[in-house]
Amino acid sequence: MKQLTIAKPVKGVGIGLHKGEPIEIILEPLEANSGIVFFRKDLNISYKAEPANVINTQMATVIGDHRGYVSTIEHLMSAINAYGIDNIRIVLNANEAPVMDGSSISFCIMLDEAGIKELDAPKKVMVIKKTIEVRDGNKFVKLIPTKEPKINYTIKFDNAVIGEQNYCFEFSKKNYIENIARARTFGFLKDVEKLRAMNLALGGSLENTIVVDDNRILNPEGLRFKDEFVRHKILDAIGDLTLLGYRVFGDYISYAGSHHLNHLLTKELLKDEQAYEIITLEKDYEKDYEKVFA
């Protein structure tokens, strides 16, 4: 099994969720062993997508340093993971990735347009060897060893519309596109003014966010899935784990997780060299892992 990149550059435009401004995005091929790289062309600065470069997880996953940053990368990262892409450059002219419709399906469409290209280097994956867990009160995220990775996610909100939801996602590209990619980000009407006072969510609208009041959904079209909320949290978690630089072969289990807990989980994992192994997918190993990339 070989490393993958995209076959040709593709360009798109969308609104930034937090700043509310139009953002141009270009996806470009990269050579083997380059990883996922974000390039701020307005600043002429590149940031590799990896836990060491995460600087904020308050409302989104943000990478950067004192010179600049790129926010809201998780939806795009999630789509890149689903397509099995190892190496890609994302060129932006602003400090966040566009939100598109609030899900990752627009990025999947861009990747379909770009096409996939095999590189002359073997694919590598991260195999979880022992359980790693991070807790905050009753909230937790953890990784457990397995060769057939799943995400088992539970959310619980004190809201009549959302309540408690659980979804178990089994990894495959087809399953992702059909059951996860279209799940949109969500927010509460009561929080909108507070966020906008913080210069956040300025680009949020009913076109890119599910907006929930005390007992109703404000979006006229309603939900895409009855449990769209927990499916979107899975979409986010896949994107956050992609910062590890490899497809992760381990069960991810979460109760009321968040970008912050996901980031702490990746840091905790990388601190313990006995907790994981990087495996090169030569022919002897391929049969154990290939179905996840189908």
Results as ranks from 00 to 15, higher is better:
A32Q: 02
K291C: 05
K291S: 09
S258R: 02
I36N: 09
Y176V: 03
V70N: 06
G84P: 00
I63G: 12
A79C: 02
V141N: 06
L43G: 03
D42E: 12
Y83S: 05
D120N: 15
G14L: 14
E207H: 14
P149Y: 09
N179D: 10
N81I: 00
V13R: 15
T131P: 09
I238F: 11
N199F: 14
Q274S: 15
H66V: 13
I177H: 00
V248R: 03
I151Y: 14
H259Y: 01
I105E: 09
N93W: 11
Y83W: 13
Y153T: 07
G222M: 08
R184L: 02
I238N: 12
E207N: 14
G14T: 14
Y246M: 10
P29N: 09
N44M: 04
L270S: 12
F186Y: 15
A181R: 05
L218E: 08
E286T: 07
D101C: 12
G250D: 06
I109R: 08
I26G: 05
T61V: 06
A121S: 15
N166G: 04
R135I: 12
I253F: 01
M1G: 10
I234V: 14
G245C: 12
T185Q: 08
V212W: 02
V54F: 06
R216P: 10
S254V: 02
R231S: 03
E228I: 09
D120L: 08
L270R: 13
T5R: 11
M1N: 03
K147V: 09
F157W: 10
T242M: 14
P22A: 08
V292I: 12
D288E: 15
T266K: 13
K123Q: 03
S78H: 00
P22G: 04
S254T: 00
G203W: 08
I26W: 06
S78I: 00
K267G: 10
R184Y: 01
N53C: 08
G102S: 13
V192I: 15
N138I: 11
D227F: 10
I155C: 08
L195G: 03
N166W: 02
L206F: 13
C108E: 05
K41G: 02
I238G: 11
D214P: 00
G35W: 05
